[in-house]
Write a protein that binds this DNA or RNA. Structure first.
Lengths: 232, 232
DNA sequence: AGATTTATTATGTGCAGACATATAAATATT
DNA sequence: AATATTTATATGTCTGCACATAATAAATCT
């Protein structure tokens, strides 16, 4: 028995401490909730809450009956927030501007048709736009929107509205996938972002879906220097 | 009143449904926990658990006294797993190899001391290593380890052990931060990765901590073509 | 009117007890 | 020996209750 470890945060701290100090080593099974509750002088529910939090972060593996053990190869999960570009810019105290570059209704090319899992005949709205921070190019947005899924889009004035925001508000998605990579700026991107040809640029490609129906696919090419930051 | 909505997952489903169907619109304040518990026919604790989960996912904003409201700009969160490099490579069916390039105990430079929040006099172990997939350079690892936090490291043979794996097994961390960016390969990196100078490369920089104590900071420079992929 | 204190209210969290559920381990069956 | 069944156990979660805490709204005092 020891001094009050009452709150689940206290318990979490204590547990993390024991893992770090190797009182409990990777692979070790730790005492069960009832015993820990007794030792800490708190309710089992409190221990449970704490252990669940630590397990969520990947440092503990828990299985019914088998007990709780310190993860051997903790697979760390980083959660990164996908902000709306305007917010991202304004949050840094910079002035946001948006400029439509091109707008066109097209039949999809084969690769795009595959990536967006389109049926034959489904058309896309293709938008090219630039987001600026304090007047400087920040990110070039190359976007395809599935007209079948979001028919209202054809009526929208994309000079005034930007797809990044409009879609969040009007076309909720159930799931999607994102890929991050680095690439060399091609002729088009280099000119739009106003950087030398082949400059290293950060690229995000994102597709979103609502119940198997593709909504949109976007390729964001960031101006040099952009960092995507998050905590584990 | 309606059919049993007893489990917190049930409540979560119901809440998500109402948000999706715009019964509760963005910005709307939703009924308080006591009322919802009454409506669903369950305990307030259950409603609380569910609402906390939804709030965690970013779809609800909660504040004491002010109540719970539907997020106006739902910040989507992607969780991406940080695999051990060996696993990442072997999972693709490729052969994994590791090569130590350089190993050195140093006093930190000012910027590194700041980034790792080191006290004066704390020394670092600096490791440079290359991870290969099927014999080809995959990622160049440039790592600093805090000797004060992990004193055992000085005794480790880094020809045989790779820090990426050794640390997860021996020095678990409670939190950290990650940054993703694109950069141009410098002379050192270009040679090690065997690519032309200024090739666009994907860079991950990661610092990890255990209870305010810095453990390590690593800069991973990936060979061209690397993509980091995840789902929302 | 404006500033300061007090009350009110919704969420945050703790507790004890109960039952549910997954599953490892023991036992019985083929 | 291999397979099916039972049992024991650790975690998962619900309930009702209590009190803590943050933050707004109301009341009070300059």
């Amino acid at each position: 028995m020891q001094d009050a470890i009452n709150t689940w945060q206290d318990v979490q701290r204590e547990v993390l401490g024991r893992i770090q100090n190797r009182v409990w080593k990777p692979g070790d099974i730790i005492p069960n909730e009832v015993d820990l509750a007794k030792e800490f002088g708190c309710a089992r529910a409190t221990v449970n809450r704490a252990l669940q939090a630590v397990a969520d972060s990947g440092l503990l593996d828990r299985r019914r009956k088998a007990g709780t053990r310190v993860a051997v190869n903790p697979v760390r999960k980083a959660t990164l927030e996908i902000p709306i570009i305007r917010q991202e810019i304004e949050q840094r105290g910079q002035h946001y501007q948006y400029a439509l570059i091109e707008q066109q209704v097209t039949d999809p090319q084969a690769d795009m048709q595959a990536m967006m899992k389109l049926s034959d005949g489904q058309q896309l709205l293709h938008l090219k736009a630039l987001h600026l921070a304090d007047g400087l190019p920040h990110v070039y947005e190359d976007r395809w929107i599935n007209i079948s899924t979001v028919p209202e889009i054809v009526a929208v004035d994309w000079q005034q509205n930007n797809a990044n925001e409009w879609l969040v508000a009007h076309a909720p998605f159930s799931d999607g996938d994102i890929a991050f990579s680095a690439g060399a700026a091609g002729a088009v991107e280099a000119e739009i972002l106003n950087v030398p040809l082949n400059t290293a640029v950060f690229i995000i490609e994102r597709s979103t879906w609502m119940m198997q129906q593709s909504i949109t696919r976007v390729r964001l090419t960031y101006a040099p220097g952009h960092r995507l930051h998050t905590t584990i």
